[in-house]
C-alpha cells in the first residue's frame, strides 16, 4: 500500500467536502447541538427551575455504580448540584460517542455512493490507485474531520462545564481521566469501526441516502449504552472505557480486514449497470 496514494484520495475528497454544503452543514450543526445546545438547555432549565432537578432517590441507579470517592463527593452536594454533576460528567458522555459516528457517517455515506450519484466513480476506478488505497483514503477522510470535530466539541463543552462547575461547585471538572479516555480512545475507536462499515455500505449501495439510512443503525449500540447508564446497568468509568476501547480496537481490526476483502472495484460499477 502506498501512503502517498491514500493521502491523494484524502486530499481530493477533502477539497470536495469543504465545498459541499450538504456535507459541511450537518458536520457543524450536529456537534453544536450535542455539545453546546443540549447541555445548555438542560443546565439553564435546571438552574432556572430548581424543582426540576432530580432528587437523590431518582439518581440512585446511576450513583450506585459510581466509584466510592464519587459517591462521597455527591453526598456533600444538594440535589441540584448532584444532578448537574452527574449529568455533565456521566450522562452526556455517550453523546460524545454519537458526535464522531454521526459526523463521519455523513462523509462516509457519501464516499462511494456520492461518487456513483455524481457519475465520477468510473474515472476514479479506472486509475491505478489500488482497492486498499482507495478504501483507506475514503476511511481517512471520514475519520480525521470527525475526530477533529469531536475534540473541538469536547474543548467547547469543557469550557462550558468548567464555567458552570466553578460557579456552582467552586472547582473545575475538566479535564479528567474519564473524558480524556473517552475522547481520545473510545470515541475514535468506535468512529473507525462505524466508518469502515459505512464506507463499505456506501460502496455496495446505489445512492448516498440509502447508505446513510443503513449506517444510521450503527448508532444503536451507543444509544443502548446511554440507556444502560440511565438504568444503572452500566456506568462509564475509566476501567469500562479501557475495556470497551480494547474490545472495539479488536472489532476495528476485524471490520477493516472484512472491508478490504469485501471491497471489489469491479463489483461497484457492475451494480450500477
Amino acid at each position: 500500500m502506498r501512503l502517498r496514494k491514500v493521502m491523494l484520495v484524502f486530499k481530493k475528497d477533502w477539497l470536495e467536502i469543504k465545498r459541499n454544503h450538504e456535507v459541511i452543514l450537518p458536520m457543524i450543526i450536529i456537534p453544536l447541538i450535542l455539545s453546546i445546545g443540549f447541555p445548555l438547555v438542560f443546565i439553564v432549565g435546571i438552574t432556572m427551575v430548581p424543582e426540576s432537578a432530580s432528587s437523590m432517590e431518582d439518581l440512585e441507579n446511576m450513583i450506585r455504580n459510581l466509584p466510592e470517592h464519587e459517591r462521597n463527593a455527591l453526598s456533600q452536594m444538594t440535589p441540584l448540584q448532584a444532578s448537574i454533576y452527574l449529568f455533565t460528567l456521566y450522562f452526556l458522555a455517550p453523546l460524545f460517542l454519537i458526535i464522531p459516528v454521526m459526523v463521519s457517517s455523513v462523509i462516509a455515506a457519501d464516499s462511494f455512493a456520492g461518487e456513483k450519484e455524481r457519475k465520477t466513480i468510473e474515472a476514479l476506478l479506472a486509475t491505478p490507485i489500488s482497492d486498499s488505497e482507495l478504501l483507506l483514503g475514503k476511511v481517512m477522510v471520514s475519520f480525521v474531520p470527525s475526530f477533529m470535530i469531536t475534540v473541538i466539541s469536547f474543548i467547547a463543552y469543557s469550557i462550558l462545564v468548567n464555567i458552570l462547575s466553578f460557579t456552582m461547585l467552586g472547582r473545575f471538572l475538566f479535564p479528567n481521566l474519564l473524558w480524556i479516555m473517552l475522547i481520545f480512545c473510545l470515541s475514535p475507536a468506535m468512529a473507525f469501526a462505524s466508518i469502515c462499515l459505512t464506507v463499505i455500505i456506501s460502496a455496495k449501495v446505489k445512492g448516498f441516502r440509502e447508505a446513510q439510512q443503513i449506517s444510521g443503525m450503527l448508532l444503536l449500540p451507543i444509544i443502548a449504552l446511554m440507556l444502560g447508564q440511565i438504568a444503572g446497568i452500566i456506568m462509564l468509568g475509566p476501567v469500562i472505557i479501557g475495556v470497551l476501547t480494547l474490545s472495539i480496537i479488536l472489532i476495528d481490526y476485524a471490520v477493516l480486514s472484512l472491508s478490504v476483502r469485501a471491497f471489489k472495484r469491479e463489483e461497484i460499477l457492475q451494480k450500477l449497470i
Binding site: K12, E16, T120, E122, A123, L124, A126, P128
Partner: peptide
C-alpha cells in the same frame, strides 16, 4: 480512459481535476 460520462469532479477546478488524476497516474 475517456468514459461515457465526463466523470469529472464538479466542485473541483479544472486544474484540481487534472492535478488529482496526474498524481493518481503516478
Amino acid at each position: 480512459v475517456l468514459t461515457e460520462n465526463p466523470s469529472l469532479y464538479e466542485r473541483l477546478t479544472a486544474y484540481e481535476n487534472l492535478w488529482f488524476f496526474a498524481e493518481a497516474y503516478g
